[in-house]
């Protein structure tokens, strides 16, 4: 562990992250393993979301335009045991400081809206499921964030991949080319989201080959993004958490340079999301780290 910390610090100073004030989650104990152990000992019904995140400047960028939110909890009562989680990655774009303002505004607005909508039904005097559907809550969150970004960063915009976990439900809102992946323990990795990138779309339509797409000059042009256009046309869908497995949300700073198979292998090499996040950032930096790297990794321990 000590050796790992050392290696980690060395990397950070190289990437100027300290100066920029961005910080990555420090590696902690392998808590998931501890919980695995506790869970198996108690034999009781047990539902916890174990999540970790990392945000790194990368090797080439002077500023950070990514933002993320990683919030997990559990509401355990006699009648019910309900994991709750909000996980967001946004990757900004646009001149001046518009990119970073956009991503920060998006993450704050979506987080705020989701929490306020869930607060009363969960913690009010008569806790009961809200009458608004999770999908509707997510829709209005994206809507508000879209307006907020247009106001705070005119001309700027950002990607948004936001996941809300309530009980066994996973609702995802997605715009742009950050990605959510489901990774299973048996080594499968599946992108849950579709990139809203022009090149990707051309590739899907058979107009470009995989090779042409990889080297296309407009590789990073998005046809949908938060803060761009009159309305946000987010993909909103529900799914269930991979179980046993992981939910990974990341910006293109990771998936653009580390291939899916390697991502899967790194994640599955440890049961700790904390360690896995750092290995992912390391891998992206080792591959040149051309962009900011955001990673949120979630595991349901039960």
């Amino acid at each position: 562990m000590k050796k790992f910390l050392k290696r980690f610090r060395r990397k950070k100073s190289k990437s100027k992250a300290d100066k920029q004030g961005t910080a990555a989650t420090a590696p902690l104990l392998d808590e998931a393993q501890v919980w695995d152990f506790v869970g198996s000992q108690r034999g009781a019904k047990f539902n916890h979301l174990v999540a970790a995140s990392a945000l790194d400047l990368g090797q080439r960028r002077e500023n950070n335009e990514d933002a993320l939110l990683c919030l997990s909890g559990v509401l355990d009562t006699t009648s019910n045991s309900q994991p709750l989680g909000i996980y967001i990655v946004a990757d900004g774009m646009g001149g001046h400081r518009n990119g970073e303002i956009a991503s920060e505004t998006a993450v704050r607005t979506v987080g705020n809206h989701l929490i306020s909508k869930l607060y009363k039904p969960l913690f009010g005097p008569e806790p009961r499921p809200t009458n608004e559907s999770l999908r509707e809550i997510m829709e209005s969150a994206v809507d508000q964030a879209h307006k907020a970004v247009r106001k705070a960063a005119p001309g700027g915009g950002c990607t948004l991949t936001a996941a809300l976990v309530v009980g066994t439900q996973l609702v995802i809102a997605h715009l742009g080319d950050s990605r959510a992946y489901a990774i299973t323990r048996d080594g499968r990795i599946e992108a849950l989201t579709k990139d809203h990138s022009l090149v990707k779309r051309l590739q899907e339509m058979g107009q470009l080959t995989g090779e042409e797409a990889a080297t296309h000059p407009q590789k990073s042009v998005l046809y949908r993004a938060l803060g761009q256009g009159d309305t946000a046309q987010a993909d909103i869908f529900n799914s269930s958490l991979p179980n046993p497995g992981f939910l990974l949300i990341c910006s293109d700073g990771l998936w653009g340079v580390v291939n899916e198979d390697d991502i899967q292998r790194i994640v599955n090499a440890t049961s700790s999301p904390f360690l896995a996040c750092h290995h992912l950032v390391e891998a992206a930096n080792a591959a040149g780290g051309p962009d900011n790297i955001s990673v949120v990794l979630v595991r349901l321990v039960n």
Binding site: P129, S133, L134, R135, V166, G167
Partner: peptide, 9 residues
């Protein structure tokens, strides 16, 4: 949601 009764959609 089968576990909690939350309206998903």
């Amino acid at each position: 949601d089968a576990n909690s009764g939350w309206v998903v959609w």
